[in-house]
């Protein structure tokens, strides 16, 4: 069963008076439980495609079906709700909230679902244990290394048990050792927990961890 289906998608951005086509009639199917690496030169449309799959942006035309829902024409509010239950997003710069500690950062997505405080804490602790940071719950982002921050971000992405994990250059800001740890974690989430993962990367070493690599160039698959 397909987890992600991108069908004949066009994405055009308006820059001043100029229209710039970023994705051009792109179609892509990702089955459930696949770990896909999206590669390509800068400006090829990798992040745009990831944002379309994650419901952060919407296509100019075409359909994007994720976990059985066509999100191409969803309203902003409906998309926000959909994202909170279906997608886990991992950013290159981790994007943790600096004033909240690791546990509170991981708890954030759970604020969007009806759940007791105790249950929230329990789940956050479980997610942090899973990424190997069960002993860092009270640490603030500034007290963690880059690799640890990214692992907290991964815990935050998976705490709601989403069907799809999207990662935008998750190792782009990490040293080799930390990058390997993060990639090992993503591989485990894919293999052990059956998560569908779509990862944008420039790094061939990172792409090797994926089960499939898709190359983009000038808005089309190459």
């Amino acid at each position: 069963m397909a987890s992600v289906e991108v069908k004949q998608v066009h994405k055009v951005y308006q820059r001043d008076t100029q229209k710039v086509a970023v994705l051009d009639n792109l179609s892509l199917t990702i089955p459930q439980g696949e770990f896909v690496a999206l590669m390509g030169p800068s400006g090829s449309g990798k992040t745009t495609l990831l944002n379309l799959i994650g419901g952060i942006d919407q296509p100019t035309s075409g359909d994007v079906v994720v976990a059985g829902t066509n999100i191409a024409k969803m309203s902003g509010a409906a998309l926000a709700k959909w994202r909170s239950t279906t997608i886990g997003y991992i950013f290159q710069m981790y994007n943790l909230i600096p004033v909240l500690n690791a546990e509170q950062n991981v708890e954030l997505p759970l604020m969007l679902v009806k759940m007791s405080g105790a249950e929230r804490k329990k789940r956050a602790k479980f997610a942090l244990d899973l990424v190997g940071l069960g002993d860092r719950t009270r640490h603030y982002p500034r007290q963690l290394s880059g690799g640890q921050e990214q692992r907290v971000a991964i815990a935050r992405a998976l705490v709601t048990d989403p069907k799809v994990l999207l990662a935008d250059e998750p190792t782009g800001d990490l040293d080799r050792k930390s990058a390997d740890d993060v990639l090992a974690l993503l591989t485990r989430l894919n293999k052990e927990f059956g998560k569908t993962i779509v990862m944008v990367t420039h790094d061939p070493h990172a792409a090797e961890r994926a089960t499939r690599t898709v190359h983009l160039d000038k808005g089309t698959l190459s």
């Binding site: 994650g54 509010a77 926000a80 994202r83 909170s84 950013f91 954030l108 997505p109 604020m111 935050r156």
Partner: peptide
Amino acid sequence: TREIATLLVLGFSP
């Protein structure tokens, strides 16, 4: 800016 965008991506409404 990025922090707010993160909150929105996580699913908090505008």
